[in-house]
């Protein structure tokens, strides 16, 4: 495996609008997230956490700077590929506050949609999906529709979906915000385990200080730049 860095961002800028309506959200952010690492991203609301995640995820186009995903430089003052969507479905797993499962697909179809789009055979995709679902204790729900599952179960399906394409990077935007504290700890521990076991770089946006001790590192958006924060001792904030 060449190189340790899963994500490398250099001198990244993001402005919205022009002239009077110009909003400077990120101004010269530089940081790295290594493979196998779970990194928390914190900042007050509106500071640009989602925007930063979406730029790394090749969804939102930055204004300038450089982004590396693994060995591939994907952005240098412009996208270096026309097919940002291909990068997304092959390299990145997304997790959100809400599960955003597709309601007309059952659980296993939701999980296998992206791998199948990537050309993985249905049988192979189903096998990977079943392993993930069983890992998350919802193997028996594979043929259920999302509407028949609880919020916690659906969030686990969503995480399985994010993992099914064997991503190099997982971008999680407040994945625990809708969960109670016990489930939140479960999810974060799960992300940590995935980071190690699958050698994935994970960035997790969170407002929940109780989750921070579970992370390897903490990045904070401050003065429109990204800075490091010390990780608080485990047990301090957990009730």
């Amino acid at each position: 495996m060449a190189g340790k860095a899963g994500i490398r961002v250099e001198n990244l800028y993001k402005h919205f609008g022009k002239g009077d309506t110009l909003v400077r959200v990120i101004e010269g952010a530089s940081f790295e997230v290594n493979k196998g690492e779970l990194v928390a991203l914190i900042a007050p609301s509106g500071a640009g956490k989602t925007t930063l995640l979406m730029m790394i995820g090749c969804v939102e186009e930055p204004t300038s700077g450089t982004i590396w995903l693994g060995d591939e430089k994907v952005y240098e003052d412009k996208w270096l590929t026309k097919e940002t969507r291909k990068i997304r479905r092959e390299k990145i797993g997304f997790i959100f506050q809400a599960h955003y499962l597709i309601p007309f697909l059952n659980v296993i179809e939701n999980v296998t949609l992206v791998p199948q789009t990537n050309g993985v055979s249905e049988a192979e995709a189903n096998k990977i999906a079943m392993e993930l679902l069983e890992y998350f204790d919802i193997g028996d729900k594979a043929r259920s529709m999302p509407s028949a599952l609880s919020g916690g179960q659906n969030q686990r399906v969503a995480i399985a979906r994010a993992l099914a394409n064997k991503p190099q990077i997982i971008l999680a935007d407040e994945p625990t915000a809708a969960l109670d504290s016990k489930r939140s700890v479960d999810v974060v521990k799960m992300l940590k385990k995935i980071a190690i076991e699958q050698n994935v770089a994970v960035i997790m946006v969170t407002h929940d200080e109780a989750m921070l001790p579970l992370c390897d590192r903490i990045l904070k958006i401050e003065d429109k730049k990204v800075v490091s924060e010390p990780v608080p001792k485990e047990g301090v904030a957990i009730l």
């Binding site: 969507r85 997304f94 789009t117």
Partner: peptide, 12 residues
């Protein structure tokens, strides 16, 4: 919303 999510996760 589902279509947006599909596009986000990279469905062409």
């Amino acid at each position: 919303k589902e279509i947006a999510i599909m596009k986000l996760v990279g469905i062409p």
